[in-house]
């Protein structure tokens, strides 16, 4: 009897598994053809000299050797790391501040949530052009506002020292997405924890550090990971403002992000093999950074349902 039941169960499980696989097979096929295979093949291309039109010519590790010799690879990496190191904490910090303010908006929360998210709908190319207008050192809105409080604004878009800070500030244009995610996380923090903290005499700062932050640490960790990856892949805004439509011939090395240089190698100079090697290097760097974040995160992040220890 048991054996027959087990057999039926197994048969049903197999059928269910087969059906499930059938349902997700379009995705699996797409993943294999358009994701996995290209990734693997780009690994091969990184070992070749390839100009898009003629056949790849195997050159071994030559492209990787050249990565170390090309000063612009290091320059663009430095620029990208600097940008990521500034923009990610600022982005998350301000998004958290806005989310906490939104918590207090009560009935108007929906309205403000929409307002904060709207800038995310702006195409990145438009954001790049907007940067040039807002941050123009002569008559930009940013300097006009600074002027009101007696601060002479710098030439954000032409002074090498201020170009990356300008890009970091402009990246805040799209923090609406993170704000909405953090707002959802804040809404999920049980009220009775705050009440208990209040009874224990905890002030606002203590409640924030001992209740809010631990309870939303999982969301914060997620945002740190995805925003770091996005910052390391930053391209469109800086390219539009300093290398593309915004500036025909003028450019500034201070805005040369890694992916911009990769794009130039691939699609302007047609060095597709070298660009593939650059892509793999970036992939490796992102993996290492994410691994470090994960290890650190395991010590700092609290997930509900876990043994708090």
């Amino acid at each position: 009897m048991d054996t027959a039941r087990t057999y039926r169960l197994r048969k049903r499980n197999r059928r269910q598994t087969r059906n499930a696989l059938l349902f997700i097979s379009p995705w699996i096929l797409g993943f294999l053809v358009f994701t996995l295979w290209p990734i693997l093949y780009s690994g091969y291309l990184s070992l070749t000299d390839y100009d898009v039109l003629n056949d790849p010519n195997f050159v071994g590790l030559e492209n990787y050797r050249q990565l170390g010799q090309d000063p612009r690879v290091m320059l663009s990496l430095r620029n990208t790391m600097f940008y990521a190191a500034l923009s990610v904490p600022l982005h998350i910090g301000i998004a958290l501040l806005l989310a906490m303010l939104l918590m207090r908006a009560r009935r108007a929360t929906g309205f403000f949530r929409t307002v904060f998210y709207l800038p995310n709908m702006t195409p990145p190319v438009a954001v790049g052009i907007l940067l040039l207008l807002l941050f123009n050192g002569h008559n930009g809105l940013v300097n006009a506002v600074l002027g009101f409080v007696g601060i002479p604004g710098p030439d954000w878009t032409t002074d090498s020292t201020w170009i990356k800070p300008g890009l970091v500030l402009m990246s805040l244009w799209t923090l609406g997405g993170s704000t909405i995610i953090l707002l959802a996380a804040l809404n999920n923090v049980p009220r009775d924890l705050y009440d208990a903290a209040l009874v224990d005499g905890a002030g606002p700062l203590r409640r924030f550090t001992s209740v809010t932050v631990p309870m939303i640490s999982g969301t914060l960790f997620f945002l740190v990971i995805v925003n770091t990856i996005a910052a390391l892949q930053s391209f469109t805004e800086a390219y539009t403002a300093y290398f593309g439509a915004g500036n025909g011939t003028y450019s500034n090395d201070a805005a040369l992000f890694y992916v911009i240089y990769l794009f130039r190698q691939a699609f302007e100079y047609l060095n597709m093999g070298f660009a593939s090697a650059m892509a793999w290097l970036l992939f490796a760097i992102i993996m290492v950074i994410t691994a470090i974040q994960y290890v650190v995160g395991r010590k700092l992040v609290f997930y509900e349902g876990e043994d708090g220890g």
Partner: peptide, 24 residues
């Protein structure tokens, strides 16, 4: 050669999209 080149272009472009999110 044309076939290999065809594969290579498709793969290079797709991989660039996937690895760094900027290619066509």
């Amino acid at each position: 050669l044309a076939r290999r080149s065809r594969t290579a272009v498709a793969v290079a472009a797709a991989a660039s999209v996937l690895l760094v999110g900027c290619a066509t």
